[in-house]
Design a protein around this nucleic acid. Sequence first.
DNA 1: CCTACCGATCGGTAGG
DNA 2: CCTACCGATCGGTAGG
Lengths: 218, 218
Amino acid sequence: MDILPVETAPDEAPKRARGRPRKTPDERDDGNRRQALLSAAARLFRLQGFDGTSTRDIATAAGMQSGSPFYHFKSKDALLYAVMEAGMHSAIARQVQAIGGALPPADAREALRRLIQVHFEVLLGPGNDFVPVMLYEHRALSQAERATLAQLQVRYESVWTPVLQALHDGGQLQAPVKLSRLLILGALNWTVQWFDRNKEASVDELTDAALRLFLRST
Amino acid sequence: MDILPVETAPDEAPKRARGRPRKTPDERDDGNRRQALLSAAARLFRLQGFDGTSTRDIATAAGMQSGSPFYHFKSKDALLYAVMEAGMHSAIARQVQAIGGALPPADAREALRRLIQVHFEVLLGPGNDFVPVMLYEHRALSQAERATLAQLQVRYESVWTPVLQALHDGGQLQAPVKLSRLLILGALNWTVQWFDRNKEASVDELTDAALRLFLRST
DNA sequence: CCTACCGATCGGTAGG
DNA sequence: CCTACCGATCGGTAGG
């Protein structure tokens, strides 16, 4: 459920009791409530969209009162941005882990298989609402925020290029590398719209199908 | 700009001076103002999203006052639905025209090329905002509306199946037919997110790249 | 189609 | 973090 393996949020460290006849000090523990807001926001934004979700909805889902989210986040927009940034950091971390250091590995086809599989998991895995929100609520962001996130996206997508280039050089991929990357990622991203973990094929079957669709067999 | 090649917009043909101290009865003739609202709504919904567009925005864009759209449409939601329905009817009509009667034609690869090309034109052509709205504002619809539109979508997508089946039988398509259709349409639909008519490749180049990506050469 | 206008919702804030 | 609250916006309507 925790989608932040990478960056530890620099949460105010010490900070004592701050007297509150409700709630035991232990409960405050912080980072805790902020995280609850992030998760609730991600889930609701994915389910109902950014505009379709009120900050009151999010507060309720996190067990707070209507004004409280603004204690943790400057604005609703900042909350959306935090969800997206967390999603991208998580996606990048998983990608690095799945691919390992060597790029492209000896077997480029296997490398692409891993890239596709980890992408599906990030998009379709249970509780992974952060990246879908990133993909489908792009419009709500400000110019500056969009630019910063674009850098993370470039970082994520750039990993695909050498793999596709190797496949292209080897004759397994026919279309131009750049357009291939855009079309392939589009095909994968769109699965969010139709894939149903309970009915459709499994993520593994999906990965196999994608691989067979994009590459000619060796 | 007009996305309705089928149902000819019954634009008042003669219409003189259009002198308007208030509006001559002849001008009312309707269909005209309604169409203006549809076009304005499609453009704004695509640009700013459904929630991000107020009915006042649409009214202004169509040269009306804030309450006037509700003379033509029962609700903002009905306006969205009308945009989507028009988009789907337009898409289906163009598809039929491009493919002709025979399905699949002798050359299945050529059939797929036409399907892809017409799909790109419907999505990316100048002034074609109706179908992108359909794709990306799906969530704002009611259950019943969604069901009706789903039928049109099935009708549109079902044309792809025999073509893909023929290619699969012929060995040019390796992945399962149904998953192939879903993945291919996803790749195409996602181009709305990144394609720039002024910078990126042309629609023709895009079509070629897609064909090479999905099919092994003959 | 225009002129008012209403009721509800929403993001956000002061002050504790 | 909660309590109360504000100002703005928005979909929609009556009545012409």
